[in-house]
Nucleic acid binder design. Structure first.
Lengths: 223, 223
DNA sequence: CAACCAGATTAGATGCGTCTAATCTAATCC
DNA sequence: GGATTAGATTAGACGCATCTAATCTGGTTG
């Protein structure tokens, strides 16, 4: 069965984007990881993976790990592109906060036509990154989905430039935005408490203690 | 079974909006009419109508005619509201032509959240009509879906103000827009050819011959 | 009135996407 | 190396939305 023999249903797009996302973050891409991410049961994922494999969108020759084929990667990047364009559009044009757009985009990514996708891209001036700092895959051509180092592992005393913040948790995003932490922010790592304690950072002359969970959502490089 | 026990799937919303649309135009609302409109088979409609009736969204006590209950009408008006708000948004904010938005809105109407619906409404300044002149149902309260007289039945020599143009056919919309015929246009009915012949109208000092099919898409009142 | 016809429904089937319960597999650990 | 255990799959089921083929229903017409 070739790719184009599978219906590009919302579910198929959801699975592809999830696999794309996990791969991009360097996380293990397994049945259970996908199930967890999508909030469905492992058998459901098993069944879908079988169909994706039959359509040559994924490759499972590497043991438990699931990899996108070149074909699958193109489609997954397409869905991701729409997701991130929609997020950018909702923030820049519609006036939503960066913490409000993820769930909205999760639905809209399946609902916009190619024409609307292009129009939004034009309207926004062909953005390269969404409001969370995630790179927007180009319509054609190569795309690299790299995550820089997490703030959670930055050295004490270093200056850290935020590039990207994981967009999964609205509350975390709101919390971080309230403290001025967003892509582009440069902060100072004052102190790292041991034993899973918080990391103290200085942003615009104010210091904040971020728990390790939160600190791991923030990625960037030493500035 | 009460209304809220039925899932508000896309299909359910599609059926409700279709029934709403046919009723609003004063057309017969029957199994086959709905099937035709939605492009599905009559048995499929039969099955869905049974579920809609069990959920008390429609009432079929009037022989073959299908009527929305008060409850069903509220839901149908909600879907229609989203459809028309999206159309307006796509034209006014995104820059689409009025002939391009119907198909787009058919999908997006199911995908926008209540929050986004409200935000779009605010952004547009609470419009009362969409680009085709169709009234946008208010979020709460009464809504009247009335179609004025068709241009096809306007008297020779009368002046006719266009209020509303049926949005089903992109090509027809483009054709009409090219000739300056859209809501608000005032035109003069020069001559009606008999035997299903065209109707001659004068718009901005240019005259055009419109076939009866086309003329029946244009609704308004003598000005 | 009987036959016909249009329109609606029932019967039976399919594919998708999901579930739970049971089973299989493969890595880990004493 | 055998037992445990985590993870994946198979088995069996369900609801939604759709189809085709067959049947039912009700009005019109010769």
């Amino acid at each position: 069965m070739q790719c184009c023999e599978i219906a590009h249903t919302e579910a198929v797009e959801d699975y592809l984007r999830t696999i794309f996302k996990l791969s991009g973050r360097g996380l293990p891409v397994t049945t259970s990881a996908v199930a967890e991410q999508l909030g469905v049961s492992p058998p459901t994922v098993s069944a879908m993976l079988k169909r994706l494999e039959a359509s040559e969108l994924i490759d499972r020759s590497g043991g438990r790990a699931i990899a996108l084929t070149a074909h699958g990667d193109r489609h997954a990047a397409g869905v991701t592109r729409r997701h991130r364009l929609v997020e950018t559009f909702l923030v820049q044009v519609v006036g939503f906060g960066w913490d409000e757009v993820h769930a909205e985009a999760d639905v809209l990514e399946h609902a916009i036509s190619e024409r609307l996708e292009e129009r939004i891209d034009d309207l926004l001036g062909h953005p390269t990154h969404d409001p969370h700092g995630d790179p927007i895959p180009p319509r054609t051509g190569e795309h690299v989905e790299s995550w820089a180092a997490a703030l959670g592992s930055a050295a004490e005393g270093s200056r850290f430039r935020v590039q990207r913040v994981a967009d999964d948790d609205s509350n975390a995003l709101r919390y971080l935005a309230d403290r001025g932490i967003k892509p582009g922010t440069v902060l100072e790592v004052v102190r790292r408490e041991p034993f899973g304690g918080p990391i103290w950072v200085m942003v615009e002359a104010r210091s904040h203690a971020l728990g390790p969970t939160l600190a791991d959502l923030v990625h960037g490089e030493t500035a």
